[in-house]
Amino acid sequence: MFRLFVSLLLSACALSAQAEVRLLTSIKPLQLIAAAVQDGAGQPDVLLPPGASPHQYALRPSDVRRVREADLFYWVGPDLESFLPRVLQGRDKPSVALQGEAGMTLRHFEAPHDEHGEDDHEHEHEHEHDHDHRPGSLDVHLWLLPANARVIAARMAADLAAADPANAARYQANLKAFEGRLEQLDARLKARMAKVASKPFFVFHEAFDYFEAAYGLRHAGVFSVASEVQPGARHVAAMRERLQKAGPSCVFNEPPVRPRLADTLSAGLPVRLAELDALGLAAPVAANGYETLLQNLGDGLAGCLEAL
């Protein structure tokens, strides 16, 4: 009888351990925010593997099952993960497209002009990107604004509490702790970025406008070229001329691969090359993972600009 009681007790504990909310996000930055809210009550999962493009990802049958079986699913929206709407039609559980969440601050791409009225993008092809950067289109990198991260975390905390009332107090406490850490980090980043705001930098991908807006920065130009195509000599000369006019500056690319063009453009010029990781590839999936993503961006930007 005692062995039966122990067996039933262990079975009940096993069922309880399996009852945590299955939270799935499309991309890692959203997973990092979820990890802060779910800390101690579960571990969020992510759909896309590291380095995969959220714009043109081919779902496997196992991915489709994960999407349909998750208790809660969060994605940026159809402007980023265009492959998801059809799959989500088969879901009967909550799915949240965060680009439509109340309280989010959204940015749209403007017609690019520098201070001289010239186009600040150097394009080799009209369609070199796998997502839309045309004037008026939504800038989908919305997780890079700390204020948006707070909105996302609050929505996740409310949804988790509804799905798991027994841990509602924990989710709320985690949310408050996340907001407190983010407030402190925000203040530190603002103080550091203020010292380098006047220094010029260029990017290969216009992915950081939300972060720049939060901290008073503005890139001097975007070198938007297809990574698999080497631009012609005249085009390279035009881009090098822009760098020459800027003087000492930084040029940032995103990991994991530096464009071949970067070394060609910077050769012999007072230009420093560095990486900025918008997707938090190096950040741990932990309570402080999102802050690590922001801190790494701040360190990358300021570290390079401070050295000019």
Rank of each mutant, 00 (worst) to 15 (best):
D277P: 10
E275L: 12
G232S: 03
A286I: 06
N288A: 11
A262Q: 02
S16A: 15
D209K: 10
V257T: 03
L84C: 05
E118C: 05
A41C: 08
D71G: 05
V76I: 15
V46A: 09
A194R: 11
P49T: 13
A149M: 03
G300P: 08
L30H: 15
A274H: 01
L265A: 00
A149W: 03
R181T: 14
K93F: 02
S224Q: 09
P270A: 01
P49F: 08
E228R: 08
L80V: 10
A168K: 11
G303Y: 08
H205R: 02
A177P: 06
E69L: 02
I27Y: 03
S62K: 10
S82A: 10
G103F: 06
S198Y: 09
L59D: 08
L182E: 06
W143C: 01
Q38S: 14
A35F: 07
D277R: 07
P146A: 04
D159P: 00
A282N: 11
E241G: 15
A207Y: 03
Q244W: 05
F2H: 09
E275I: 03
F208Q: 00
Q56V: 13
R234S: 13
R258K: 15
N288D: 14
R170D: 00
G216F: 03
T105P: 05
L281P: 01
S227H: 12
A233S: 14
A12W: 01
V203C: 08
L294K: 12
F201W: 09
N296Y: 07
A163T: 00
G221W: 04
P78A: 13
H133A: 07
A283L: 03
R65Y: 12
E122D: 06
A194E: 11
L144C: 14
S224H: 09
A286S: 14
A70W: 05
V96F: 14
A226L: 08
E306K: 06
P248L: 03
P259T: 08
A191Y: 04
S266A: 15
T105V: 13
P256I: 08
F204W: 08
R134P: 02
L84Y: 07
V271L: 02
A267C: 03
A162S: 02
L189R: 10
A287R: 10
S26A: 13
A287Q: 06
A197G: 10
F83S: 11
K93D: 04
